[in-house]
Simulated assay, not measured.
Amino acid sequence: MQLFQEFREFAVRGNAVDMGVGVVLGAAFGGFIDSFVSDILLPPIGVILTKMNFENLYISLSGGTFVSLAEAKAAGAATINYGLFITASIRFLLVLFAVFLVVRQINRWRKPHKSPMASLMKKECPFCCMPIPKPAVICPNCSSTLTEEGIEKPPRWHIK
């Protein structure tokens, strides 16, 4: 019973739900990009490059000559399908670029004061001049107590 309760807590935790949504959206986005590359992007490129179909670019390892990749596969010939590899590479680059654009836009939408990195921003200790985290109230380097105005009380052992 406790195992089920732990699993339920894990499943409804924000990170697991976010990851699940991301996987579903990624699969849908992958289908969209596949269709975009195969049906819209590569046909005009194939026409420009002497009317070739990227899916029919292959090397037959069995020595036979075939009109298309489908014919070679039907004959049972071993082939290196470099046209399919080119298509997959273009799909990958498009997905990579799209993810870059999405992450870039999300980073622009974030408020600087709500960013997790904002709390790690550095300030300088007015006593020892070492960089310390902004929210620090005691300098980890010289043990000075910091206030809004500067140093409240230097450490007792420190010699001026």
Rank of each mutant, 00 (worst) to 15 (best):
M1N: 13
F4H: 07
F4E: 13
F4C: 06
F4I: 11
E6T: 10
E6P: 09
A11L: 14
V12H: 12
G14P: 07
G14A: 10
N15C: 04
N15W: 08
D18C: 09
D18I: 01
D18K: 09
M19Y: 14
G20K: 04
G20Y: 11
V21E: 13
G22E: 06
G22N: 10
G22S: 10
V23T: 15
V24A: 15
L25Q: 09
L25K: 04
L25C: 14
G26C: 05
A28D: 05
F29P: 03
F29S: 00
G30M: 01
G31R: 03
F32R: 04
V37Y: 07
L41F: 02
L41P: 01
P44F: 12
P44R: 03
I45G: 05
I45K: 02
G46K: 08
V47T: 15
L49E: 04
T50P: 02
K51S: 15
K51C: 12
K51I: 13
K51D: 15
M52V: 15
N53C: 09
N53S: 15
F54D: 06
F54L: 01
E55L: 13
N56L: 06
N56K: 10
N56D: 15
Y58L: 04
I59A: 10
L61M: 06
L61H: 06
L61S: 04
L61Y: 15
S62P: 00
S68A: 07
A70R: 00
A70M: 14
A70L: 14
A70V: 13
A72S: 09
A72Q: 14
A74M: 08
A75Y: 12
A75F: 09
G76L: 03
A77L: 07
T79L: 00
I80D: 03
L84Q: 11
F85S: 13
I86S: 06
I86V: 15
T87E: 11
T87S: 15
R91Y: 12
L94C: 15
L94I: 14
L96Q: 04
L96V: 00
L96E: 05
F97H: 11
A98P: 07
V99W: 04
F100G: 08
V103P: 01
V103N: 01
R104K: 09
R104G: 08
I106G: 02
R108D: 00
W109Y: 08
W109V: 02
R110L: 00
H113L: 05
H113Q: 12
K114V: 03
S115M: 01
P116Y: 11
M117S: 12
M121Q: 14
K123Q: 07
F127W: 06
C128L: 10
P131S: 14
I132W: 00
K134P: 00
K134E: 08
A136S: 01
V137P: 00
I138P: 00
I138Y: 08
C139M: 03
P140R: 02
N141D: 03
S143F: 11
S144A: 14
E148N: 14
G150A: 04
E152N: 08
P154L: 05
P154W: 02
P154Q: 01
P155R: 07
P155W: 08
P155G: 09
W157Q: 05
H158W: 11
I159R: 09
I159A: 14
K160P: 00
